[in-house]
Design a protein around this nucleic acid. Structure first.
Length: 271
DNA sequence: CCGCCGCCCTGCTTGC
DNA sequence: TGCAAGCAGGGCGGCG
């Protein structure tokens, strides 16, 4: 499940691999994946456009095109964007959309669960208006975070997963940041003290930065644009570690369910 | 605006 | 051993 560090790693790899390439043709084998523009127009409107730059916004990979438009891609759980040197290679399994470039190379968008989406948006289209602040940008300050949480009755972990507030945090890094900040995942967001919010702010930035430096977390499916696994799975403190010892206090890590999501934490040191 | 819920989909795990 | 049911999960639309 690619979150900010994984999507950032993928986008950087794609920038190196395909920036400057021109699209010769687009093969769509599962039409519901390519949502806009609908039908055959998705492929025809991409033809002859050029990939200018590949970036990330939240958990979305964004292909900036020479025409000014953007191809916005959501990987959801099992989505992969893999570059193949030539089109004679066998397609990656579960490839639903393939971009063929004029130099003979190819980009496969594969997604086993079929939840992933690609959307071509116009130059002036505010496609990310509903997305919240980027947690690794300077606009995400502790002060701003304090303001965002005030008056909220919902659990802090559910808040962290809400992409309309902060963009890019998923289940792994929400669990890890709350552990690092020593905060219970089910604590009402508005009840956190200012020192606790400052700790959590620092923990979010720290965890996302360290995970990005290690090219993300590969717990099961995730690989980057070159097909390589990340390195942060070896640094996880609580995520997926039910029954194992808390690295800080030695108490056993528990798994509970919060907002229909598995949640791993330490009952002793997260208050 | 806010919070909650169900849906989408497939492969893996669980339980009989 | 074999099979079916249950579970997981990000984003989105619908609802109150």
């Amino acid at each position: 499940m690619p979150e900010l560090p994984e999507v950032e790693t993928i986008a950087r790899g794609l920038q190196r691999a395909i920036a400057g390439k021109t699209i010769a043709a687009v093969d769509v084998t599962l039409p519901k994946i390519a949502v806009a523009p609908p039908g055959r127009r998705f492929s025809t409107s991409l033809q002859r456009d050029t990939i200018r730059r590949v970036t990330r916004r939240g958990k979305y990979v964004v292909f900036d095109l020479r025409s000014g438009r953007r191809l916005v891609t959501s990987l959801r759980m099992t989505g992969r964007l893999i570059v193949q040197a030539n089109a004679a290679l066998e397609l990656l399994p579960y490839t639903h959309v393939a971009l063929r470039f004029t130099d003979g190379s190819r980009l496969c968008f594969s997604e086993m669960r079929q939840f992933g989406r690609m959307r071509l948006v116009e130059a002036d289209e505010p496609w990310d208006a509903a997305l919240g602040v980027e947690p690794l940008e300077s606009s995400f300050t502790a002060r701003a975070f304090i303001g965002m949480l005030s008056g909220r009755s919902g659990a802090i972990k559910v808040f962290l997963l809400d992409q309309r507030r902060i963009a890019g945090i998923g289940n792994i890094y929400a669990c890890e940041a709350l552990w690092e900040a020593r905060i219970r995942p089910d604590k009402p967001a508005g009840s956190l003290t200012k020192p606790a919010i400052r700790r959590l702010h620092a923990a979010i930035v720290d965890v996302l930065t360290r995970a990005t430096d290690l090219r993300g977390t590969s717990v099961d499916d995730y690989v980057d644009a070159e097909g390589l696994r990340g390195g942060f799975q070896n640094r996880l403190s609580v995520y997926g570690r039910e029954g194992q010892k808390c690295p800080r206090c030695g108490s056993l890590i528990v798994r509970t369910v919060l907002g229909q999501r598995g949640t791993w934490w330490c009952r002793r040191c997260q208050k």
